[in-house]
Computed example of a mutant assay.
Amino acid sequence: MTIFKKIIDGEIPADIVYEDEQCLAFRDVSPQAPTHVLVIPKKEIVSIEQLAEEDAPLLGHLWLVIRNVARELGVAEDGYRVVVNCGRDGGQEVGHLHFHLLAGRKLEWPPG
Rank of each mutant, 00 (worst) to 15 (best):
M1E: 15
M1K: 15
I3T: 09
F4Q: 03
K5E: 12
K6T: 05
I7S: 07
D9I: 01
G10W: 10
I12H: 12
D15G: 02
I16L: 03
V17S: 05
V17K: 04
Y18A: 05
E21Q: 10
A25C: 08
F26D: 00
R27L: 03
D28Y: 01
D28S: 00
D28H: 00
V29N: 01
V29K: 00
S30A: 15
Q32V: 07
Q32S: 10
H36L: 02
H36P: 00
L38A: 06
L38G: 05
V39A: 05
V39Y: 02
V39G: 03
P41R: 06
P41K: 07
P41D: 06
E44Q: 15
E44M: 12
V46K: 15
V46S: 14
V46D: 15
Q50D: 15
L51I: 09
E53F: 08
E53S: 13
E53Q: 14
E54G: 09
D55C: 10
A56I: 10
P57R: 00
G60K: 05
G60C: 05
H61C: 10
L62N: 08
W63Y: 15
L64E: 06
V65M: 05
V65C: 04
V65I: 14
V65A: 06
I66W: 08
E72V: 00
L73K: 07
L73M: 11
V75K: 04
V75G: 05
A76I: 06
A76H: 13
G79H: 08
R81V: 04
V83F: 07
V84D: 02
N85A: 13
N85C: 13
G90T: 08
V94T: 14
V94C: 13
G95V: 09
H96D: 12
L97W: 02
H98G: 04
G104N: 11
R105E: 14
K106R: 15
L107A: 04
L107T: 00
P110K: 06
P111Y: 12
P111K: 11
P111R: 13
